[in-house]
């Protein structure tokens, strides 16, 4: 799973034919991606949990507030975004927990490859397995909340871009709390305030579509937030993991 210290003297062909991960950042990244994907795909119930949670929370609102379609339609963008955000938060605690408990996180830290890059691969898998499914499921729940037609595409797109930022920011909190036995509640306390800008522009994008305003500005800012998170979060996650492991 991790590259060795051997210098890259062999030719590409020889390495591929032997099928061994040997040196090189690309190989290490690919191995991390593959390993995390396999691990997650073998625990399907864990993958389903955020989606079921998302659906359940959305079910609670018409029951708790009112089944009136007009009222639901006005609050639907915010509801869907808040519920998806909480569902993504729910899955964060397990992001590094398993690797921490079986010791493979230490091996990741010992690897000669830059830790921020490897961590980015782990976060990418997390987004692929929680953020993206949530984004794809949101239009169905939007339909149940009688979200006005024409905003479904923007809802899915804003969630897809937004949850990527959420995964990156949340991974900082997950890395800081992974060494603590009861990190779950603390994790949400650390991470939720940092989620607010993404929520504002994500839900804002859907609302702007409904009101017929231009939506590109919102999506552009969501993209900008993602770019900043991509640039800075991997370093913060790597530093936090080192603190949690070495402490």
């Amino acid at each position: 799973m991790r590259g060795t210290e051997a210098p890259m003297v062999e030719e590409e062909g020889a390495r591929v034919s032997r099928g061994e991960p040997r040196g090189g950042l690309v190989v290490a990244l690919r191995a991390t991606l593959k390993r995390d994907l396999i691990l997650l795909l073998r625990r399907r119930s864990e993958l389903m949990n955020p989606l079921v949670f998302f659906a359940l929370v959305i079910t609670l609102f018409p029951i708790g507030i009112s089944p009136d379609p007009v009222l639901l339609a006005t609050i639907a963008p915010g509801l869907l975004w808040v519920a998806a955000l909480l569902a993504a938060l729910l899955s964060l605690d397990s992001l590094f927990r398993g690797d921490f408990e079986d010791g493979s996180l230490e091996q990741l830290l010992l690897s000669p490859q830059p830790l921020p890059a490897l961590v980015l691969a782990k976060v990418a898998v997390h987004w692929l397995m929680t953020g993206l499914p949530l984004a794809l499921m949101a239009p169905v729940l939007g339909l149940m909340l009688s979200l006005p037609a024409g905003s479904y595409g923007v809802l899915a797109l804003s969630l897809a871009v937004g949850t990527a930022s959420l995964s990156l920011i949340g991974a900082i909190g997950a890395a800081l709390t992974v060494g603590l036995s009861r990190g779950g509640v603390l994790l949400s306390l650390l991470v939720l305030p940092l989620y607010i800008p993404v929520l504002i522009f994500g839900a804002g994008a859907v609302k702007a579509t409904i009101m017929g305003d231009g939506v590109t500005a919102h999506l552009a800012i969501l993209g900008a937030l993602l770019a900043v998170a991509l640039m800075l979060a991997p370093w913060a996650i790597a530093a936090s993991l080192r603190i949690s492991i070495n402490g």
Partner: peptide, 30 residues
């Protein structure tokens, strides 16, 4: 809360420092 959650003071200090730095980058954005 993060500082209080760690039992080792060294980890607590470093974790709180990282979180404060992450927070200060986020304050203008928020």
């Amino acid at each position: 809360a993060l500082r209080g959650a760690f039992s080792s003071r060294h980890s607590a200090s470093r974790a709180a420092s990282v979180l404060a730095m992450v927070g200060v980058i986020n304050i203008p954005i928020i």
